[in-house]
């Protein structure tokens, strides 16, 4: 329930909301800081859920539908939690010309998921990027935070296996 004029209650006791509050304060506490704040939420929690969107919207006095509209307009934001590992296949032009499509097909077949999805066991999320700016190393893949260049389907499969083994 919205109480008129008051600051909305924190969605939870989680300390990470302090970071979110700090960003909102720094951005002036108004709607202009919406995107900055969503960045902070996603960095802190990994994704944007309904509670977070509601809290941010009410704190910045932004209509709920506008917050949702912004969160779904930008591809960088995600409303669903990701897997333990993420694999980003770059589909920039240079990577495409050098066979990134094959890498994507390999991943889809191996994991049986589509880009943007996470394996049912929550282990791996498969993502695509429009361009990582590592075109000199095409085709490029990001394993978790690490960029790998000149990747081929074989090295892709072995990396997946490495993830699977380390976890077991």
């Amino acid at each position: 329930m919205v109480t008129y004029g008051s600051k909305p209650a924190l969605p939870s006791a989680d300390k990470r909301w302090k970071l979110v509050d700090a960003t909102m304060r720094k951005a002036g506490g108004n709607g202009r800081g919406l995107i900055e704040t969503l960045h902070t939420v996603q960095e802190a929690f990994g994704y944007l859920d309904e509670d977070a969107l509601r809290y941010v919207a009410l704190s910045l006095r932004v209509p709920l539908s506008r917050a949702y509209g912004v969160a779904t307009f930008y591809h960088f934001f995600t409303l669903k939690p990701g897997g333990r590992h993420t694999c980003v296949i770059c589909l920039g032009t240079a990577c495409y010309i050098k066979g990134a499509q094959h890498l994507l097909e390999t991943m889809q077949q191996t994991l049986s998921i589509a880009p943007g999805e996470t394996t049912p066991d929550g282990e791996v999320s498969l993502l695509t990027a429009r361009c990582l700016g590592s075109c000199g190393l095409a085709p490029a893949v990001v394993y978790d935070q690490e960029v790998a260049g000149k990747v081929d389907p074989a090295s892709l499969r072995s990396h997946l296996e490495k993830w699977a083994h380390h976890d077991s």
Binding site: L91, G92, T93, A94, Y96, R130, C131, G133, S134, C135, G136
Partner: peptide
Amino acid sequence: DEGDPGAF
């Protein structure tokens, strides 16, 4: 906001 795929 260098968005062109293939530009860095």
